[in-house]
Computed example of a mutant assay.
Amino acid sequence: MKKAFITGITGQDGTYLSKLLVEKGYEVHGGVRRISQSAMARLNALGVADKVQLHEFDLIEPNNLFRVLRDVKVDEFYNLAGQSFVGSSWELPIYTADVGAMGVVRLLDTLRSVHPETRFYQASTSEMFGLVAEVPQSETTRLHPRSPYGVAKTYGHYITMNYRESHGMHASSGILFNHESPLRGTEFVTRKITMHLAALARGGDAPVELGNMDAQRDWGFSGDYVEGMWRMLQQDKADDYVLATGVTTSIRDFFTYAAEALGLNPDWQGEGREEIAVDRKSGRQLMKVNPKFYRPAEVDLLIGDARKAREKLGWEPSVGIRELAEMMARADYDALA
């Protein structure tokens, strides 16, 4: 039986990855800063809470990392932890860097000391591309991050590459474009949209407030992307891979897909900061722009080129953007029943 350790196991990706590994017969361990019932909500939702072993684990505590990783020898290590909300990284730049950058090198150096044969996965991100140098973005695209989150992730990405090249570790990075699911955190724009639309469809009257409706993202399904993570660590040679759908969608269009799944029909009126969406059937306002949700430096267009993952890993996304929006909207609507 293979053994795996997942940091960020109680998050969206950690939960889907736990389910995948359990189904593949792994003994799954997870690191959490504090073990509580509320932290188990996602694992309970996918029915794997009683199938994983949790350990108190904090990426800013080197002695804690050493003790846990010394005692829990695993075949595969997936680092999915971090301050993962881009918007908060401007308010928490030092913490974001400590966890997202220095936390990665603490993990790698500890593993190099205690179990250097462990295969390591680093959760990199499309936010590293930032002010994009080319469209679409691939593994060789120049990085120009536009947020403290993206800067921290860029360090984590390069230090993973460095430990692979300098110390011969089987260390891979997945440059994942945006991936969502019904388990997505409520602070993320996709889940914010589907939760508010579900409330409106149930009779609510408060429109959702959003920022830049013209921002475009390459959105996929988290369940697909964790399969790609696993496939990276099954390769004989470690490497870096983009995981993406290759389809770009504006926040406005994602909103429309989710609304239509709930029987709402948005009519878009106005432009820029004056833009609103009104339901054609009822006349209720569904959305309004609030400038406070604009980022200090926006990443306007992210679209990934996942040819390398398709060719070398045999990985393909299975859920399209409209299906994803519908899945999330219906899950939030059903949760309000």
Results as ranks from 00 to 15, higher is better:
Leu313Arg: 00
Ile276Cys: 07
Gly246Lys: 05
Lys153Leu: 00
Glu117Gln: 15
Thr110Lys: 00
Asp75Trp: 06
Asp205Pro: 01
Asn63Ser: 15
Ala49Pro: 00
Ala325Asp: 08
Lys153His: 05
Glu298Trp: 07
Trp219Asp: 08
Gly272Trp: 11
Asp236Arg: 08
Thr248Trp: 13
Glu127Ala: 14
Lys153Asp: 02
Asp305Glu: 03
Thr141Asn: 09
Thr256Tyr: 04
Gly263Ile: 01
Arg106Ala: 07
Pro93Gln: 08
Gln83Arg: 04
Glu260Met: 10
Asp109Val: 00
Leu183Thr: 04
Ser222Val: 11
Val52Glu: 00
Ala259Met: 04
Trp315Gln: 03
Thr141Trp: 06
Trp268Phe: 15
Gln235Val: 07
Val72Met: 09
Ala309Pro: 04
Asn162Phe: 11
Val319Leu: 10
Arg146Ile: 03
Ser36Gly: 10
Val32Leu: 12
Val72Leu: 08
Ser113Met: 12
Ala325Trp: 09
His144Val: 14
Ser318Met: 08
Asp224Gly: 04
Thr125Ile: 08
Arg280Gly: 02
Gln83Tyr: 00
Val105Met: 05
Leu143Val: 10
Trp268Lys: 03
Glu275Ile: 12
Lys24Asp: 00
Ala199Asp: 11
Thr154His: 07
Met328Gln: 10
Glu274Met: 13
Thr15Met: 11
Ser138Cys: 14
Lys308Gly: 02
Leu131Thr: 03
Val86Gly: 12
Val22Leu: 11
Arg310Glu: 15
Ser126Ala: 15
Val52Tyr: 01
His157Met: 02
Gly304Ser: 06
Tyr16Gly: 01
Phe254Ala: 02
Ala152Ser: 15
Ser166Lys: 14
Met102Phe: 13
Leu59Glu: 01
Val104Arg: 01
Arg252Ala: 14
Met40Tyr: 03
Asn79Lys: 00
Tyr149Leu: 05
Arg280Met: 14
Thr141Ser: 15
Val242Tyr: 02
Asp214Pro: 03
Glu117Thr: 07
Val242Phe: 07
Met1Thr: 06
Arg217Met: 07
Val32Ile: 07
Pro317Thr: 12
Gly263Asp: 13
Val299Phe: 04
Ser173Met: 11
Val28Ser: 03
Met1Asp: 04
Lys2Arg: 11
Phe221Met: 06
Glu117Leu: 09
Val247Phe: 13
Gly272Cys: 10
Arg146Asp: 04
Gly25Trp: 04
Pro145Ser: 07
Phe5Thr: 06
Asp224Gln: 14
Phe85Arg: 14
Leu21Gln: 02
Gly168Pro: 05
Arg34Ala: 10
Thr154Val: 12
Asp267Tyr: 14
Ala97Gln: 07
Trp90Pro: 03
Thr194Glu: 02
Phe57Leu: 06
Val135Gly: 09
Ser318Lys: 15
Met40Phe: 08
Phe120Arg: 00
Val242Gly: 00
Lys312Pro: 05
Ala259Gln: 01
Ser126Gly: 15
Gly30Tyr: 05
Glu91Asp: 15
Arg112Trp: 02
Met287His: 07
Ala244Tyr: 12
Ser318Ala: 03
Thr141Cys: 07
Leu21Pro: 03
Ile193Leu: 04
Thr256Asp: 15
Ala297Thr: 11
